[in-house]
Design a protein around this nucleic acid. Sequence first.
RNA 1: GCCUCGAUGGUGGAAUUGGUAUACACGUACGACUCAAAAUCGUAUGCCGCAAGGCUUGAGGGUUCGACUCCCUCUCGAGGCACCA
Length: 947
Amino acid sequence: MHKRFNHQEFEKKWQEKWSETGLYAVGARDESKEKEYVLIEWPYPSGNLHIGHWYAFAVPDIYVRMRRMQGKQVLFPMGFDAFGLPAENAAIKNNVNPRDWTEKNIDHMRAQLASMGNAFSWNKTCSSTDQDYYRWTQWMFTKFFENDIAYRGEGVVNWCPGCSTVIANEQVQADGTCERSGDVIEKKKMPQWMLRITEFADELIDDLETVNWAENIKEAQRNWIGRSSGAEIDFKLSTEASVTVFTTRPDTLYGATYLVIAPEHDLVTKLQSKITNWGEVAAYIQETKQLAEQDRLDNTKEKTGVLLKGVTATNPASGEVIPVYIANYVLASYGTGAVMAVPAHDERDYAFAKKYDLPIKQVMVPCMDDPDNPPEPQYDLIKRDTVVVHLRDRSTGKYALLNWHGPQEGIKTAIMGGIEEGQTPEEAALAEISEETAIPNAKIVKTSRWITAAKYCARHKATNRCAHTYSLLAEVEDLSEQGDIPENERKLHTLTWHEASEMRNLITPKHQKQIWDLLQSDEALLGSGYVINSEEYDEMDSEDAKEAIVKKVNGRLTNTYRLRDWSVGRQRYWGVPIPIVYDPQGNAHVVPEEHLPWTLPEDVDFKPTGEPPLAKSKELLDRTERIFGAGWKPEVETMDTFVDSSWYFLRYIDNENTEHFSSTQAQKDWMQVDTYFGGAEHTTMHLLYSRFWQKALKRLGLVEHKEPYVSRHNRGLILGPDGNKMSKSKGNVIDPDEQVALVGADTVKMYLAFMGPYIGANYPWDNGGIAGIHRFLERVYGLSDHVVESIEHNETTKLLHKTIEKVTRDIAEYKFNTAVSALMIYVNQAEKTGLSKDSYEMFIRLLAPFAPHLTEELWYSLGKSESVHAQLYPVSDPSIAADEEVTIGVQINGKLRGEITLSPTAPEEEAWELIEKHPSLSKQVLNQEIVKKIYVPGRIYNIILAQ
RNA sequence: GCCUCGAUGGUGGAAUUGGUAUACACGUACGACUCAAAAUCGUAUGCCGCAAGGCUUGAGGGUUCGACUCCCUCUCGAGGCACCA
């Protein structure tokens, strides 16, 4: 019979007790303990906690509780990201003040969070709407303004008619609609408050190497920033003006046979008087505008353009006079908004040139000579994380050597190798091979030729992902293994893929083909081509030619980025007022520190009229004039809410500091964030913005670390029981409050933990599944009935220690599902065999992070006087957990035929004896011709019989 | 189109990272208890087969004594990027 428990009787009781005693409050830094800063994304107080919040908060709580019980000082704060549009919209709708609405929601959500029973460090909380908080948001903005990180820019912005505000590029969806309202975004030119995130683009990419995040999250950040390196080159126009182009291929400058400018480029209108076919041009500009608005995703769209008659340009390298076009395939927003077209070496330029019958001039040849018959790679030699292939160019005798980092990176990391001076190939080869491949007695049978030529691939060097600048390919044999085999029978040891299977990125025929194609393509020329038809640069390697040609024409080597500066102003009410005032001449000045917080005025009608709500505040204007003088005007924009969440982790750690946003000492004590759990939807924007914020503060010497988060983990989504995303319209929403009332917080939390691995995947809610967890906790509640006075069964003790080991390891790896499963297995057995009182107590402690209320109840019912959560986490005794005997499978010709039980360290003879004695196995094995016996102690015995 | 993940029973998932595939849970069936139902307990449960046995990790191939795991090709799904010069 199950022993029922009534969660309502004790969950609330313990929550109150924990709160009263401050069990989870984190005080001053205790240097005797290791610190750990666990961060979860602070919620927007929308009014109601949903099941996704539970998944986001309650499951990491398991991790936090275990770390605390292991003796770490763990900071696990919680707060509210409370500025933003929903409050304002709700306020407009219900005719209330956004502050009241927000505060009411926060109160409600705090109560809901209390019912979760999490071990939050509530004494370290903050909310972005507190004056104590936004005062510092403003202060940082003033520092950024003073140091030219924040600036008043003028630019084309995304105007959302629905929200009556400007929104960031990042908040515009792929279909050109607003992330929040769904309205179609219009481009509008207006003055804008901007943050120079692009100036930090390189750091934002490069410092990813210093953090311990999953590769896919890093890659998303890199893609978002979208760095490409190249050069800016000026082309003189016949009108005396000049136009700057950005190119990644300055080495092909001699091949630039025409120029293309984006239709929306400023220069085009400036040239209006010189353009003789202006009517045609103007019509085309209008046409592309509409096209771009209509469907920006259509890349099968034909490349069209219009010649600017009356205007020509001069190729600064060759001196040739070339035509100038505007064309839809060039975007004003990327690079300089103008390109030099090299149709011989660029796909799009080529298509365009063909269409308009423009000259195509080849200025580069690949170092390979026979595209239809790619040579076999000579040999492949596998290094750690690196595969090397080389191909020979028969015409020049050069070798191209490629360090291959797997499919995604390899294609871009063509690299030429060189030889160190004073080294013979054989010497270097031996060193390389024995170092990199761990073949101790390698002997060179045949070496490839060494590669001279280019030092690096520019793109490759820019990302700095490869440490190897030279390499050798060789066929080697392993003398230590094959010493006894006659020479003519020796198998050459070429490091087969199988042997290197622990290395993930291996070269394959497909990759070889890709490399070949790469070498044939324009891209390949970056690393391995040489220049022709380029006067004094002929025969020069393209890498060298890049620098030389840029220098000749006074170009600038530079990077360009997809990322654009962060536009932070919003024409909205419910946000942090931008702490800027304008003097009568219209110059911007920061609001000095003594006037911060520059409070959000209360006397404002915030209904949207297109005019910023703060412009209607008499109080704000009066305040400005009173402090700064007559004729001064306040800035009336508020900040994007992504600003608020860009530094909250710094405020948590020193939330009561009135002198500083976060003291150096607090940062020394707690930064960086060790573990940051969050949703995949914040992989690009929030993570990038907050990393930028930290870097900007670091540049001003205000923080210690250049990166805020050591590790980041994206959790998945909880779907409705029907497998769809939960939504009211689908009627598949699971209300956590209802579930808690029904089965209790412990059950809900443990069920969420049990659904699957925490990192990555999405799981549908299953009402049957949660019932199973509830049954399990009821059995735990009744487990005390199985406590025996006599000595406990050995196997049960052993299982407990194995369980401790597994649970501890799994929690540390966020595999809460298998940890729960291990706990279940233990209870199943303990119920059958009984368990000792000591084991029972250990188990309660082991379970405590998963079911904090129930275990607390059980713990105190044992007569304890101190919380179970203040106890040490049980530690497994390896000598008890170790198996004296294991059952292993016996395979014959690879098929499982039986089992034997023996010590995991038993010698092979012992295992063989057991097989000989085995009733069915012996029949199959004895009197057969045995080719080979493979015995892996503790794992498997495989016998190969002659066929 | 490119990039990044994925695909294991009726369902969620597990598999010591190359060593007995399907742990744990749900669901289902049968049995016990009950007048009955629920709850609970017990047994069974990948597929085919009475059985012996055979088959099985999206499909096909490869490496290996041995592959869910490594390699290749293909199919499907999720997410990201996209006229980026």
